[in-house]
Write a protein that binds this DNA or RNA. Structure first.
Length: 847
RNA sequence: GGGCGGAUAGCUCAGUUGGGAGAGCGCCGGCCUUACAAGCCGGAGGUCACAGGUUCAAGCCCUGUUCCGCCUACCA
């Protein structure tokens, strides 16, 4: 497994926390289960972000990047990295991430940089990397090109300006509609649809571009949508992708009017030097003055923003480096189609395919300094480009030594795309690569499915000849309790480190796991985390209880065979076995929330609520074997539960586990429990259910009747079957005394039911609590009435089913049989409850 | 514009081959029962968004509708 490398500038946020918690659960589970596991950590150099951060630092000293110069600036970044970079790594440690920290990698490391060069050169040699003029997304604040993925489109209110472009010959004018009047300064044509009757006669004529007084042609192109705006479209090939393509088709000149800082340049005539938005207003004003502005409409449109600085992206014609992506994408599509890599949950496969099939060439050059500098050199003599693995001495064409390296660096994702193999020593054929490539699973959020996963697929297949991972598990995004994205501006960010401080890493991790249901966003609120801290506390206290009772326990000497375990011992061992199976299955299929739920349910509601309570009797038993047997089972089950819990809650389980008798070393390298089916014991489970049910009913009556716990009651049981049940209850009567405040247990004989008694119906047994002097009959009558009503509802449902002939004919036999039995027992229950009511009535009337 | 997901208890959400609606929190009542009051015991609360359909049987499958969210796209 390789970690999705977080930005070196970053600090741990919820997304990382979830991501790493899930990976850590997987890696700890598999490690304990005896597999050779590697979890390789690291960070990426986050070109734009890092440069941004360090530039801000410089600004505090009144220095600028350019003032410092490239080399010194990069030194400065390295210094910054040494001091502040990678705090996220420490934060991951606090979360409990059990990466192999000795293998930490950084995308700018020497080895990884070498891989980057190797890949670049090979792709260049295969003509898969090229340099070309194209419209790219330019961020005027970051001063760099951005890939299509790095632009956020947001619906933005704006205006739709209808502008007259007068015909050269005079007379009419053609009205074009635009949201960006400042770009008209760079217009080189007006386009209409060839089949638009309104304009057909104008095609081939010329207009005078207002403000610039330039003569430009009216052309026909099917790209134009007749029904939109005025049906006439101004064409600015240097500042719009589509206009650029139209321009190519019609051999239009390109005129750049906006410079790299977002200011109007010398081509903008009198608007030169203005910011593009200022220019927009001035241009509109000028048009108004000249009566060329026909109208202005309110209009909402999609505007691209820089994902990093949120400035408005300027599409600009520029020379950039690209990767020809189709030849790389095809094998990556095929690999997923053939199941070489599984994307889970499978819903994401479709998204992956959609994107891969419509992929566009990847603009990989960035006009910043921090990153892998493109290994291309321009010859000052002949102008030829030399691309080389090592810094070249001479031009590959003319041999001149007068070379200058390309100033641009590569997109950070270029190096991240190599992560699964560059971190393991590629291009060397290392042992690590042989052992760990392809990686077993990549765990990540869907937000970087395209940025990263898709690109790793392409690069892995290209350079390793094999997919980079067998499984890609896509987890949800973490949102706030209202389902909103966490963002600083909304102020709804929950800081994982604060959560760890406040609730502990274990509780926090367990929360993340239990919320990580597949295919859903994780809505996190502090309440939930707090709830799981209680769980951690519960575990701690249960462990304390066990340990407090082990003073005289010797695990070697005191071990007794299974056959001599008590019923409750066998019962809890059976449930433990089921638990192991369930947790394993859930983890194998990345159902973290299920695994967490199984553990929670078992530890709290089966082990603590029941077994420990039952066990208290065993511990004080006069029978030494009973005591040591209970001790043994308490320790065994706790130990097993701890090991199952360890991937989720590494800290607390470690602490407790090491203090259990007989344990040495770390729980981390102990074995993950294996289900031993010889401990499955249906019989014990059924018997315990009966006992628990009687306890439950007695408690229920007590609760509803408000009988104080200190008030012991007498319980009379009337068992239905051949005496086995009676035997069972008699043998375990101490549990009733202990857990239901029963003072005396009696068995009714024959069919004689106590008259003045509260009644409950359980499987194979009727339960009576004589009421004399305890409660009033009216209350009991109401209670029984409620029971009858509840049963009635269920009863009528079953009855309806069974009276449906088609159900009887078509439903599977076992289902029908189940319903029949249910029917019978409900009839029986109803009858008994009604008899109970009658008896109470009698008593009340006699009163 | 295209695609995807969601709508289940007051709140946040589970519910994988269609066969007796669940959890946590909150709420009500009773308990300091010596592991745990961050706890224990009991209880109330749901025509599973709406309308159709398939089926003996639908929270689950199909169709449509409404509302919410996300992704994606070059309509100036």
């Amino acid at each position: 497994m390789v970690i999705p490398p977080p930005n070196v500038t970053g600090s741990l946020h919820m997304g990382h926390a979830l991501n790493c918690a899930l990976q850590d659960i997987l890696v700890r589970y598999n490690r304990m289960d005896g597999k050779n596991t590697l979890w390789l950590p690291g960070t990426d150099h986050a070109g734009i972000a890092t440069q941004y951060v360090v530039e801000k630092d410089l600004a505090k000293e009144n220095k600028t990047r350019k003032g410092l110069g490239r080399e010194e600036f990069i030194d400065r970044i390295w210094r910054w990295k040494k001091e502040h970079g990678g705090i996220i790594i420490d934060q991951l440690k606090r979360l409990g991430a059990s990466c192999d920290w000795s293998r930490e990698r950084f995308t700018m490391d020497e080895g990884l940089s070498r891989a980057v060069r190797e890949v670049f050169v090979r792709l260049y040699e295969e003509k898969l990397i090229y340099r070309g003029d194209y419209i790219i997304n330019w961020c005027p604040r970051c001063h760099t090109a951005l890939s299509d993925l790095e632009v956020d489109y947001k619906e933005t209110p704006g205006s739709f300006y209808h502008v007259r472009y007068p015909l050269k010959k005079g007379g009419e004018a053609i009205i074009v509609a635009t949201t960006r009047p400042e770009t008209m300064l760079g217009d080189t044509a007006v386009a209409v649809h060839p089949e638009d009757d309104r304009y057909r006669h104008l095609v081939g004529r010329e207009v005078v571009l207002p403000l610039m007084e330039r003569v430009i042609p009216i052309i026909a192109d099917t790209y134009v949508d007749k029904s939109f705006g005025t049906g006439a479209l101004k064409i600015t090939p240097a500042h719009d992708l589509n206009d650029f393509e139209v321009g190519m088709r019609h051999n239009l000149p390109t005129i750049k009017v906006i410079d790299e800082s977002g200011k109007m340049n010398e081509n903008a005539g009198s608007f030169k030097g203005m910011d593009r938005f200022v220019c927009r207003e001035k241009a509109v004003a000028a048009l108004k003055d000249r009566k060329l502005l026909k109208k202005v409409e309110q209009y909402n449109h999609n505007v691209g923003y820089c994902y990093r600085c949120n400035d408005v992206i300027e599409p600009t014609l520029s020379k950039q480096w690209f990767i020809k992506i189709k030849p790389l994408a095809e094998p990556a599509i095929a690999a997923v189609e053939k199941g070489m890599t599984k994307i889970l949950p499978p819903i994401w496969e479709k998204t992956y395919f959609d994107w891969m099939e419509n992929i566009r060439d990847w603009c990989i050059s960035r006009q910043i300094w921090w990153g892998h500098r493109i290994p291309a050199w321009y010859c000052k003599e002949c102008g030829e480009v030399t691309v080389s693995r090592t810094d070249p001495e001479a031009c590959c064409a003319c041999g001149s030594g007068s070379l200058e390296q390309e100033a641009d660096v590569l997109d950070t994702w270029f190096s991240s795309a190599l992560w699964p193999f560059s971190t393991m020593g590629w291009p060397e054929k290392t042992e690590d690569l042989a052992t760990y490539y392809p990686t077993s699973v990549l765990v990540t959020g869907f937000d970087i499915l395209f940025f990263w996963v898709a690109r790793m697929m392409m690069m892995g297949l290209k350079f390793m000849g094999e997919v980079p991972f067998r499984d890609v598990y896509i987890h949800a995004l973490v949102r706030d309790a209202q389902g909103r994205k966490m963002s600083k501006s909304l102020g709804n960010v929950i800081d994982p480190l604060v959560m760890i401080d406040e609730y502990g890493s274990d509780a926090f991790r367990f929360t993340l796991a239990s919320l990580a249901a597949q295919g859903r966003d994780v809505r996190l609120s502090e309440d939930v985390i707090s709830g799981y801290r209680h769980f951690a506390n519960k575990i701690w206290n249960a462990a304390r209880f066990v340990q407090l009772n082990l003073a005289d326990f010797n695990p070697q000497k005191d071990r007794i065979p299974y056959s001599r375990y008590s019923l409750v011992d066998k019962w809890i061992l059976s449930l433990t076995t089921r638990l192991i199976r369930n947790v394993r299955e859930a983890l194998e299929s990345y159902r973290f929330n299920e695994a967490a739920a199984f553990l929670y349910q078992f530890v709290w509601h089966e082990f603590c609520d029941w077994y420990v309570e039952f066990g208290k009797h065993g511990l004080v038993s006069a029978d030494g074997n009973r005591r040591s047997g209970t001790q043994q089972v308490l320790v065994d089950v706790l130990d097993t539960a701890l090991r199952l819990l360890h991937p989720f809650m590494p800290f607390i389980t470690e602490e407790i586990w090491q203090n259990l008798p007989g344990n040495t070393g770390s729980i981390m390298v102990s074995s993950f429990p294996k289900a031993d089916t010889t401990f499955l014991n249906r019989d014990a489970e059924e018997k315990l259910e009966k006992i628990k049910d009687v306890i439950y009913h007695v408690r229920n009556i007590r609760g509803e009747m408000n009988i104080s716990p200190s008030q012991k009651v007498t319980v009379v049981l009337l068992c239905m079957d051949d005496g086995k049940t009676r035997q069972l209850f008699n043998d375990h009567r101490h549990y009733f005394f202990q857990l239901a405040s029963v003072g005396d247990l009696q068995f009714a004989t024959g069919q004689k039911r106590p008259k003045a008694a509260a009644t409950a119906i359980s499987k194979d047994v009727e339960i009576f609590i004589p009421l004399a002097g305890i409660i009033d009959f009216g209350e009991e009558e109401r209670r029984l009435g409620k029971e009858v009503a509840k049963t009635e509802k269920e009863f009528s449902l079953v009855q309806k089913k069974l009276s449906n002939e088609e159900f009887l004919r078509k439903a599977p036999k076992d289902i029908v049989e189940k319903e029949r039995q249910r029917y019978a027992s409900l009839v029986e229950k109803q009858r008994k409850l009604k008899e109970g009511i009658l008896r109470i009535k009698e008593m009340r009337e006699a009163d």
